[in-house]
Computed example of a mutant assay.
Amino acid sequence: MLRPIKRRRDGTYVLRLDEDTLDLVRALAAQLDPLLDDPSADSGLRRLFPPAHEEDVLAEAAWQIEQGARLRDSRRAALGALDQRAEEPMDEERMVAWMQGVNALRLVLGERLGIEGNDDGEADVAEAEAVLEASDDPAAVEEARRRLAAWQLYDLLSALVAYAVRALEAGED
């Protein structure tokens, strides 16, 4: 089986992913990028921008003034790395940025799904599948489909991060 992310003998990395998957990742990055302008306006960005001083409003405001723009720029640069094409060589720095971009997408989706700790979504998925099997309510069925799709996307993003970590840890093949 081909690994979806591979470190080559020359030390570069390549994505062996289909263009549909890469297009999806790029589309998600394009949706997330404008939200970075004001992270406090969207609670879904909490994991990307966790408060540095939760108990001290003044210290948090000072931190945001001093470091907020740098963190937003870093997140934006990682999302920019997601424009990578399949089989196009990347150096290690670019591979790390690509992985960070995918992880940013995963963190935001995880926040939106309400994931806590090692939650694998099994209960949420089972509930959604039960609705699909038993419900005659079109709105409930649509919501169940949306939840299942979100969990599938979360699993895909998690797998991509894991493959990237393995590739970065791997020695030459």
Rank of each mutant, 00 (worst) to 15 (best):
L2I: 15
R3V: 13
R3C: 03
P4V: 00
R7I: 09
R7K: 13
D10G: 02
G11N: 04
T12E: 05
Y13W: 03
Y13K: 01
R16T: 02
D18Q: 10
D20C: 05
T21L: 15
T21S: 10
V25C: 11
A27R: 09
A29Y: 10
A30Q: 13
Q31A: 13
L32C: 06
P34W: 04
P34I: 06
L36T: 07
D37P: 08
A41G: 12
A41P: 06
D42I: 01
G44M: 06
G44L: 09
L48Y: 03
P51D: 14
A52S: 12
H53I: 04
E54D: 13
E54S: 14
L58H: 08
A61L: 07
Q64A: 12
G68I: 08
G68S: 09
R70V: 11
L71Y: 03
L71P: 05
R75V: 13
R75M: 14
L79D: 08
G80R: 09
G80M: 09
R85I: 04
A86H: 04
A86W: 07
E87G: 05
E88W: 04
P89T: 11
P89D: 10
D91S: 05
D91L: 08
E92T: 12
E92N: 04
E92W: 04
E93Q: 14
E93G: 14
V96W: 10
W98H: 03
Q100F: 14
N103A: 09
A104T: 03
L105Y: 05
E111Y: 01
E111R: 12
G114E: 09
G114V: 06
G117V: 03
G121L: 01
A123K: 02
A123F: 00
D124M: 03
V125D: 00
A130T: 13
V131T: 15
E133H: 11
A134D: 14
A134T: 15
A134G: 12
D137E: 14
D137T: 09
P138L: 14
A140H: 10
V141E: 15
V141I: 15
E142Y: 14
E143H: 15
L148F: 06
A149H: 15
A149T: 15
Q152P: 01
L153E: 13
L153Y: 07
L153D: 06
Y154R: 01
L156R: 04
S158D: 12
A159Q: 13
L160D: 01
V161P: 03
V161S: 02
A162F: 00
A164H: 00
L168I: 00
L168A: 00
A170N: 03
D173C: 02
